[in-house]
Amino acid sequence: MKKEVVTLSDLSVEAGGTVILDGLSMSVCEGDYLGIIGPNGAGKTTLLRVILGLQKPTSGSVRVFGADPASVRRRIGYVPQRLFFDRDFPVTVFETVLMGRLAVKGMLARYNRNDREIALGALETAGIGGLKERRVGALSGGEIQRMLIARALAGDPELLLLDEPTASVDPGMKTSIYDLLDTLRKSMTVILVTHDTGTITSHVSQVACLNRGIHLHEEGEISSAEMSHMYPYPVDVLVHEPPKKILRRHRKP
């Protein structure tokens, strides 16, 4: 029996009178590579924020590594959807990646040689070692995404959460980011949120469809009945685990 890394039970989140997540139950085990897909507004980002402990559930419970999420933050690496930063902000790639050490270091402690070596290693893993002295404002979308992954890796996480890692990335770069994640999943549990249904199914080990509620698929075709349950509009039918492609058009009756 594999260890459970994330356990959600009957989790609901409401904000400003709107139900964002409704009675979600799901568990993610050690070594899983879970892709969560869903339309805009399905609550994907909210779900990640709950797992990070940034958002408290209205009801139900969330356990990460068997504990309250806020208490295990140093074991979680987070790659936000998009860095809303000022392109004029004077900060280098290396300094940004070093921020990944924040959760590990205490207040007042300064970054030391060990931190710098780990950050350098994370840059190399993410394939952007050559950009370390570049100003962040001078990076392309794909390079920023790799930098954010490197920052998450610098914290030496056991669980990696990514929010739309390929949203603002050109197609060639997209594939290489998925290749990078394929490598990373060998050493950590990965949860990825995306609306990029095309590519994701051929990489991840599980797919979950999120739209307020959740449906988890280990393998096989995601049936039309299941899809229409989750999405009230026409969707492509997804197949997950061989043959890993979209089979046919499906219209909701």
């Binding site: 979680i76 921020m99 959760a103």
Partner: peptide
């Protein structure tokens, strides 16, 4: 607080995730 101030100035959400 140089590293903390840099983190909150640059990316407040990430600083919060990091437990600051």
């Amino acid at each position: 607080f140089y590293k903390e101030f840099l983190a909150v100035s640059f990316d407040e959400e990430y600083a919060e995730v990091s437990g600051l």
